[in-house]
Amino acid sequence: MFTTGSKLLIGSSVFALVAAVVYGVTQNEALGIVGLVSAACALAFLAGVNVWAGDSNLSALDTAAVATSEASDDPPGASIWPMVFAVGAAAVLVGLVSQQSVFTIGLVILLAAGAQWAVQAWAESASTDSTTNAAVRGRLANPLEYPLLGAFAVGGIAYALSRIMLWLSKTNTIIAFVVLATIIACIAFIFAARPSLKRGAIGGVLTVGAVAIVAGGVAAGVDGQRYIHVYETIAADAALVCNSPEEFEVDEGASQTVSTKAGTYTISLTAAGTLEFDVPGPVAEGSDAISLRRSNPNNIVFRNDSGEARRLTLDFGPAPEDEASAAAEEGYGADESHGADESHGDKSDRNLTCTSLVEDGGAQLITVKFAEPSFAYADDAEAYRFYVPGTDAEIDVVVP
């Protein structure tokens, strides 16, 4: 005897098979045929299982089976975790063929939903009383759920606020968060002054506020953050800045004074356009090269007395191979001049560092460290020398 469920499944499988035949004859398209045949096979399998189980129906005349069969057990409680588990599994499959982030999120959902589903199924088998089962589940899961949910909620709200802050302008960010703080303070005052308010009302207000913040963060994140200017650094723009006597953004607001420091070297650009140096201790008579230490930081004060704003540049030698090859491909080199209005991020085949632009009468400290002795670059006339862009002034550097 076929039960109602068996009849529905058998009819569905036959309908899917007939639809596959009709689709194949009329459309002659393989993908649709495969889908319909797969659906027919799945429905046929379910129909066979249902016929074998007899739809778990019991005869009304079998009074013993009413109390002893599995059908007499209380049905399991409603649960959302099977659906969440399926969503996580789908995200994992999509992530395998799209992005790793989707795969990671799906895997987290899959594990979390699977754990919740397993705990709920275990708790429902603890006794025949649903209240007792709920208490058993709470004792096992709540100590872990509450901290994780709290951290997730706080983290989500904080991240949403950060998206809103990055979307608003600097001035509007201040105004918006002053207003938000005022609203929160007023709501908190009302809750404190009216202790008779129901917990449900308080929870509802907090939920609405959290949802509003998260929705605002999502909208701001989708729209994109405001333009944030990236300020230059000498390290990032050495090829452009260190070879030019012009003023750049990195030179704005740079310190022009240096306090007295012990153990520093001094290099001065004179009014005649020459470089002079002074080192701690005696200097060999007639020496035209400054001697600096290797593998230790060297603090050098650059003083500009030339009458014009200048910078001091140090050439360490050829740039690392990866940077030099990129420079060759893009056509940049140590001898190529760059205007002050050209784009930044240029490559150079030289390893350079420099001070910012020092005004006349100003001074600036630069710290340098040498990894190799100067004789390692004996064949390189450019290596290990201080020079001032825009002038012919330079000093050779000797590193023992």
Rank of each mutant, 00 (worst) to 15 (best):
M1W: 04
S6E: 13
S6F: 05
L8M: 12
G11F: 09
A16I: 10
V25H: 07
N28D: 14
L31W: 14
G32P: 06
V37S: 06
L43E: 13
N50P: 03
V51Y: 10
V51H: 07
A53L: 15
D55W: 03
A65L: 09
A71L: 12
D74A: 15
P75H: 14
P76N: 10
S79V: 04
V84G: 08
V84C: 13
F85A: 13
G88L: 01
A90E: 03
V94F: 10
L96K: 03
L96I: 05
V97M: 11
Q99G: 02
V102A: 03
T104H: 08
A113N: 03
V119K: 04
Q120H: 02
Q120L: 05
A121H: 04
D129F: 07
S130C: 06
N133F: 00
A134M: 13
A141L: 05
P143T: 00
P143Y: 03
L144P: 00
L148G: 09
G156Y: 08
I157T: 10
Y159L: 14
L161Q: 14
S162H: 08
S162M: 01
S169N: 13
S169V: 10
T171P: 02
I174Q: 09
V178I: 12
V178D: 03
L180F: 14
A181T: 10
I184N: 11
F191E: 10
A193C: 06
P195Y: 01
S196P: 01
G204P: 02
G204D: 05
A210D: 08
I213K: 11
A215L: 13
G221E: 00
D223S: 14
I228Q: 13
V230C: 01
A235S: 05
C242E: 00
C242L: 02
E247I: 00
V250K: 02
E252I: 07
E252K: 10
V258L: 02
V258T: 05
V258G: 01
K261E: 15
G263R: 08
G263N: 13
I267V: 15
I267G: 06
I267A: 07
I267Q: 07
L269R: 11
T274H: 12
E276P: 01
F277C: 09
D278V: 08
P280A: 00
P282T: 06
V283K: 06
V283L: 09
A284L: 05
D288E: 15
L292Q: 02
R294Y: 08
I300E: 07
R303S: 15
N304M: 04
S306E: 01
R310C: 01
P318T: 07
E321V: 13
A327Y: 00
E329A: 15
A334F: 09
D335K: 04
D335L: 11
S337D: 12
S337N: 14
S343V: 14
H344A: 13
D346M: 09
N351V: 00
G361I: 08
G361P: 03
G362E: 02
G362H: 02
Q364H: 08
L365I: 09
I366T: 03
A371S: 12
D379V: 05
D380G: 04
E382C: 06
E382K: 15
A383L: 04
G390H: 04
D392F: 12
A393S: 10
